[in-house]
Simulated scan of single mutants.
Amino acid sequence: MESSCHEDEMEEEEQWTAVLPRIKCSPKSAPALRTKENKSNCQLPHRISEEVMQGIEMFEQGQYSQAVDRFTEAIHCDPKDHRFYGNRSYCYWCLEQYSSALADAQKSIQLAPNWPKGYFRKGSALMGLKRYSEAEKAMEQVLKLDQDCKEASSKLLTSRVLQLMELGFEERQSKVLLEKFTTVQAVIAASEAQGKRKLKCRSLWVGNITFEVTEKDLVDLFKTFGEIESIKVLYERYCAFINFKNANMAAKALVKLQGVELGNSKLVMRYPDRWMQQTLPSTERTSAAGTQQSSAVPGFRRRAPVNGDECYYWRTTGCFYGDKCRFKHIPEQYGRDKKLCQP
């Protein structure tokens, strides 16, 4: 059903078959004179159908690059069919070519502004690019068009959790706070109102620092956001601490430089663990015995791989390291182990 977004990303047979063009060369519209040009035009719908069928088969076999080629041919035959762009966007997403996936998703939206899957593809691509606040808006649009789309609800929650994690919240704590306050903005506002999170930290923890990155490289990158008082690089821990003159400078750098490439690695940033433990709001839950327990606020820890060599975060909320991660990112396993926040 084209208008709905019942889209578990592993159930592709139903989803992809639904977008096949049911086009036939109608005898009523056929020209009286069968010229060479007219004959070619009459065969065009059949060619499109063949390209799409081949694209589906290749996708199901995991041949995503070849599937891209087939949907590209279909687009050349009919550049106004939004479904072909949506299909090719998904192929690019499986290849982790998120910029191309985003471009195709935006094209499908341009052609069909009320098609939920177009916004779902856009949101998925934005999450791959780690543009989580934009992904959140895309998933919200999906739900405006199809409020029953469970996959969009799931990714909407994930995009919000990842935004809070970028600010230094621990994953479990992020889910508890979102369960209570719903949006990222509401979580931050509530924390500030309680006086427990004033965002007055002048320091940033920067991860993914390799030996290729020098102190001068860090100074040149971060000084555009304000005066730097000191920098401490800990190569043995693959991280560095940047201390700005004031908190506003640190806050801007945190937002603008998250995921920026430096020394062939994508930087990961948050406020230092010690500051986070002192300032983040505690989350309390009532146990079965009726006693209240405060959750700890540990720093972001790298979890052990799953199934031997699969990335834990790829299978849950998304991996900050992208294609630089030393563990496997299997496209069809993305988000497989993600647990929704229970009401």
Score class of each variant (00 low, 15 high):
residue 189 A to C: 06
residue 66 Q to R: 08
residue 62 G to S: 08
residue 232 K to L: 08
residue 56 I to L: 02
residue 181 F to S: 05
residue 20 L to P: 00
residue 327 F to E: 05
residue 277 Q to I: 06
residue 95 L to F: 02
residue 211 F to A: 12
residue 140 E to P: 01
residue 25 C to A: 15
residue 54 Q to W: 00
residue 90 Y to R: 13
residue 214 T to D: 07
residue 246 N to L: 04
residue 322 G to R: 09
residue 242 I to S: 09
residue 39 K to H: 03
residue 197 R to L: 15
residue 192 E to I: 03
residue 300 F to W: 09
residue 217 D to A: 02
residue 319 C to V: 12
residue 25 C to W: 07
residue 281 P to L: 13
residue 331 P to S: 08
residue 221 L to I: 08
residue 139 M to N: 10
residue 306 V to K: 01
residue 257 L to M: 12
residue 236 E to N: 11
residue 145 L to W: 04
residue 206 V to A: 13
residue 225 F to C: 08
residue 290 G to Q: 12
residue 84 F to A: 09
residue 307 N to A: 15
residue 125 A to L: 06
residue 8 D to V: 07
residue 200 K to Q: 15
residue 4 S to F: 03
residue 78 D to N: 14
residue 157 L to M: 12
residue 194 Q to T: 03
residue 160 R to C: 11
residue 145 L to F: 03
residue 96 E to A: 06
residue 244 F to E: 15
residue 35 T to E: 03
residue 186 A to F: 03
residue 243 N to R: 13
residue 54 Q to E: 04
residue 113 P to H: 08
residue 317 T to N: 10
residue 55 G to M: 01
residue 47 R to L: 15
residue 115 W to N: 10
residue 200 K to Y: 07
residue 291 T to I: 12
residue 94 C to H: 02
residue 78 D to P: 03
residue 313 Y to L: 14
residue 55 G to V: 00
residue 335 G to H: 06
residue 119 Y to E: 05
residue 327 F to W: 12
residue 322 G to N: 09
residue 177 L to P: 06
residue 213 V to T: 13
residue 6 H to A: 13
residue 271 Y to K: 10
residue 102 L to T: 04
residue 260 V to N: 07
residue 224 T to G: 05
residue 295 S to D: 08
residue 83 R to H: 13
residue 146 D to W: 05
residue 290 G to W: 09
residue 197 R to V: 12
residue 163 Q to M: 11
residue 1 M to Y: 00
residue 342 Q to A: 13
residue 333 Q to E: 11
residue 140 E to F: 00
residue 107 K to V: 02
residue 56 I to Q: 07
residue 181 F to H: 14
residue 212 E to V: 11
residue 150 K to S: 14
residue 120 F to V: 02
residue 269 M to C: 09
residue 15 Q to R: 14
residue 340 L to Y: 01
residue 91 C to Y: 04
residue 120 F to G: 10
residue 311 C to R: 09
residue 173 Q to D: 01
residue 89 S to C: 12
residue 309 D to P: 00
residue 203 S to E: 08
residue 102 L to Q: 15
residue 226 G to N: 06
residue 156 L to N: 01
residue 69 D to M: 04
residue 201 C to L: 03
residue 90 Y to E: 14
residue 98 Y to P: 01
residue 313 Y to F: 11
residue 326 R to D: 03
residue 242 I to P: 06
residue 130 K to M: 14
residue 149 C to G: 07
residue 21 P to C: 14
residue 259 G to M: 06
